[in-house]
Nucleic acid binder design. Structure first.
Lengths: 315, 315
DNA sequence: CGAACCCGTGGGAACGTTCCCACGGGAACG
DNA sequence: CGTTCCCGTGGGAACGTTCCCACGGGTTCG
């Protein structure tokens, strides 16, 4: 027996060497059947292309391994119906629990599944009881961004919005509240965007064409910040001399020295870890209530933000 | 029965609606046990951070779905021993076949596993019989790059090498052979690198510090090309006016308008699809021999390559 | 010295399917 | 009208584990 029990040392080693010789490997399928537990946690990722999730997955994996579970990843490729099928498959495979990261799934599908197995959701603002939710505090993150820019002396701080994207609404609200709190309510300017590079480019073009050009632009994510960077350069302006620029997410993109974007860091690894722990906790104690876990974002200062020109001239 | 057989329409629909009401879902675990088939193909990815694999996974997924299989992703996070454990788990789960993408695994581990289930390996140059191998033709890709640059009139074309990285050796050989073929053997210049942004930066700095500065730099991958781009700008030079620059892989990075890198495209989606088809083929016909599948790369011209300055002055 | 106890081993049931076989009834043919 | 054939249904075995219970032999205690 490999399960380790009260077996004499002699017979154990005999069995073990025999197993070795025969290339025997315990059949997890049969074990799962009789134990009615698979020790698998299904992970649904909306989009593997998004580097954001890679680090979340790291956290998920390490937490699962530590607690004696396996993480099984699937994706629906941003297609809600494919995601629903993938979810169904995970359920057929009798995953003990589910983590859903960046789901485009209808909330009702999640709710239905949550009646079968414990579920944790990452980076989504859906509020279901019976489902753990792990998010970073996007509202606070946006506030950090505004505080950083305002602290440098900027007043005319525009936001490139994220539209329907995950967390976009919170970031917008955070921007607004921080602007008001800093006494800059009259400067609030929200330009539509969609979390893509192209969207950021277009939004920045519109902002730069205004009569009163913003001295700082806060893009709702790094992707759109890179688009904005392009528009700024194209207009013959330099970052951060003429315009300060911030992103959000601290993706690998932002860290490229060629871009070196000041941004807001989300503790992605920790988010994944937390989500996995939350699910496993409820797998092992099904009566435990689901919770909402909010993680603190951090400001990462790089080379795209500086004092506004007017102030610099003075100093 | 959901398996669809010779059942009267009446009883079928009765069963189906009953199943619906009770929330019944076929238990894939039990089915796997009795069928001795799981219809799962395990996928081992070395690194989920590498966007390269994301598209490969897309191809893997769609091919699996099409053929009635599930793809189950795991990763060892670039840690060989963790990868071995992950492989073992996949085997315990009784995956019908395995796809290994960018493995750092010891070849013997792969060989041992290949005696149990069919395996396909992606982007690795290990040559095991009994294992399908799917690669793009890196040698040819590097030739394409050199031919493009030479075609523009460049002679002094330096390579930033990829060291031990996957495909680096083939790319180096392709560079050398194409240079010779173009009559540029005397200009061959190989600068050490390691496929990272930092490595590309350092390598480019060394190249630019040479007495005879290259007019074109071919970096072995996009990542190191972006590093090189930075070094070039830092030296007060412009791309492509002063130096032409190429990458390899056509990652999302290269497509950013801010970078807009001329590069070599690997058919990643197709690579994944091919690997999955190869495994499933051998799952269903275990006697079939493993093959080596080589896919053709393509040149993608963007904005970092142009005629050398000397030629432009003339025209 | 006998009884109780305990450690270690072996056997059997159960998990939820699928597959195969046998059986029953109705239709078609002789 | 009887026999044969076929379609559809129902029952039982098997897949490879784990868990539980019973049993056997040795040790300890009364």
């Amino acid at each position: 027996m490999r399960g380790e029990r009260s077996v004499s040392e002699a017979s154990r080693s005999a069995v073990l060497t025999a197993a070795e010789e025969l290339g025997y490997r315990a059949n997890a399928v049969a074990r799962s059947l009789v134990q009615r537990r698979t020790y698998n946690v299904g992970v649904m990722v909306s989009d593997l292309h998004n580097i954001f999730f890679a680090e979340v997955l790291d956290g998920l994996y390490s937490a699962a391994a530590e607690l004696g579970y396996r993480a099984l990843i699937t994706t629906g490729n941003r297609d809600p119906s494919a995601e629903e099928r993938a979810l169904d498959q995970l359920l057929e495979l009798r995953a003990d629990g589910l983590v859903i990261a960046g789901a485009r799934l209808p909330a009702e599908a999640v709710a239905a599944a949550s009646r079968i197995v414990p579920i944790a959701v990452v980076g989504s603002n859906l509020r279901l009881d019976n489902v753990d939710v792990v998010v970073d505090d996007d509202h606070r993150g946006a506030e950090l961004a505004v505080e950083h820019l305002a602290g440098l002396g900027h007043k005319d701080i525009a936001l490139i919005d994220g539209g329907q994207g995950a967390g976009a609404a919170e970031r917008r609200a955070g921007y607004q509240s921080a602007m008001s709190r800093a006494g800059l309510a009259e400067w609030i300017l929200i330009e539509p965007g969609d979390f893509t590079e192209g969207g950021g480019y277009e939004a920045a073009r519109r902002l730069l064409a205004r009569r009163r050009r913003p001295t700082a632009i806060f893009a709702s994510n790094d992707q759109s910040a890179v688009g904005a960077l392009d528009a700024i350069n194209e207009a013959g302006l330099q970052v951060p001399r003429d315009v300060s620029l911030m992103g959000y997410d601290n993706t690998a993109l932002a860290a490229l020295r060629h871009i070196s974007l000041t941004t807001i860091h989300q503790p992605r690894n920790q988010i994944g870890e937390m989500a996995m722990r939350a699910v496993i906790r409820r797998i092992e104690k099904p009566t435990a209530p689901a919770r909402r876990h909010v993680l603190a974002p951090e400001l990462v200062v790089r080379d795209t933000t500086a004092k506004p020109q007017a102030l610099r001239a003075k100093s």
